[in-house]
Amino acid sequence: MAMPQRPVLPGRTSQQGPRRLARVLAVTAAATTALAITAGGAQADPAGRPDKNEVKAQVDQLYAEAEQASERATAAEEDAKRLQAEATALQGEVAADQEQLNTMRTGLSGLAAAQYRAGGMDPAVQLMLSSDPDGYLARASSLAQLGRERADSLRGIQQQQRRLDQRRAEATGKLAELEAVRDALGRSKQQVQAKLRGAQALLNSLTAAERTQLAAQDADQAEQRAARGADRIDLGSQPAASDRAAAAVAAVLSRIGSPYVYGSTGPGAFDCSGLMYWSWRQAGVSLPRTSQAQAFGGQRISLAEARPGDLVIFFKDMHHVGMYVGGGTVVHAPHPGARVRYESVSAMPVAAVVRV
């Protein structure tokens, strides 16, 4: 597959403004809530207005913490799906094992009854009184066979019972693990919402014009970093790592300008790992869902070896990811209020580079 044509952007232009956020608190109450959530409130100017740059720094921190919680929530959701499927399968095995055990017990009852009917008298006495010794010996042989079959059935039942008990214990353990994961999922979602409310409260302490200015400034600074001081973004001519990587690059480039939404995997909105997941799906490859799992979803390489299509994992805890598209540039979904965009690979600390 041919590498998609490299975009050459005209002079720096502001990305679209932040997506409209619902006003959840009055300005005074919102600012108070934000101060309680963050380590320290933004300093106000003499007129009582908060400093917008300090607000931005605190909002960026809250967005980073929300993304960390969001990735934990996404991982918990994936674990919950897996555990539910495993628990359901184990419960099906328990039912099948119980049915087989019931059938074996019924068969054993039949063997016991036949043995009782054939062997009610001591075998030595029966042989002495028998008018047909040869016939008796044949029947005695059948009786011994019944005994062996009964012993074999007993051993089979014991083994089946042990297997059934093990399956039941495994199913119970899976269900307990599932419950713990669902609890963790609920806590992570609450943390995401708390961080978002804190960020919104801080933003609400600014005027609408200041919020728009901050969003435009954030987008413009990202574009400047990606252009590295030039008047345009140049992705270079380096080929993708593979045909599928080229398809993933084409897909991610087609999503530039899409809004960031936590937990989203497209096609209209994305979080950071959701953008990678969707883009590679368009190339026929199913990636793990979270950035931490994506960090182990392929071959580790150095940043110097990066080629278009490689995943770049950011921060020590690997809570953010973008796709390398050439020229020292990644495409990523940054944070709420921003849109999928170009960014310099050096704008954030790189934890790993992964070739899918």
Rank of each mutant, 00 (worst) to 15 (best):
M1G: 14
A2I: 13
M3A: 02
R6S: 01
P10R: 02
R12F: 04
R12C: 13
A22L: 04
A26I: 02
V27W: 02
T28H: 15
T28G: 15
A30K: 03
A36F: 12
I37W: 01
A42D: 13
A44R: 05
A44P: 13
D45K: 11
N53R: 14
E54P: 01
V55S: 09
V55H: 11
K56N: 13
D60N: 01
L62G: 11
L62T: 07
A64S: 07
S70P: 01
D79H: 14
A80L: 08
R82P: 01
A85V: 12
G92H: 04
L101E: 03
M104W: 02
G110L: 03
A112I: 01
A112K: 06
M121R: 15
M121C: 09
D122P: 08
L129D: 02
S130N: 11
S130K: 04
D134K: 05
A138L: 08
A140P: 00
S141F: 01
Q145H: 02
L154V: 14
L154G: 07
L154S: 13
R155V: 11
Q159V: 01
Q159F: 00
Q160M: 05
Q161K: 12
R162C: 00
T172P: 00
G173D: 15
K174Y: 10
L175H: 02
R182L: 13
A184M: 12
L185K: 14
G186F: 03
Q193T: 15
K195T: 14
K195C: 14
R197Q: 10
A208F: 00
D218F: 13
A219K: 06
D220L: 12
Q224N: 07
A226F: 06
D234Y: 10
L235S: 00
P239W: 07
V252I: 13
V252L: 09
G257H: 13
S258T: 10
P259V: 05
Y260E: 12
Y262Q: 01
T265C: 15
P267Y: 06
G274Y: 11
M276I: 15
A283C: 10
V285A: 13
S286C: 06
S286K: 14
P288C: 04
P288G: 05
R289N: 06
Q292L: 11
F296H: 10
G298K: 01
Q299D: 15
D310R: 02
V312E: 01
V312A: 03
I313W: 05
D317S: 06
G327Q: 04
H332L: 03
A333H: 09
H335T: 11
G337L: 07
E343C: 01
S344W: 08
S346Y: 11
M348T: 12
A352Y: 07
V354L: 04
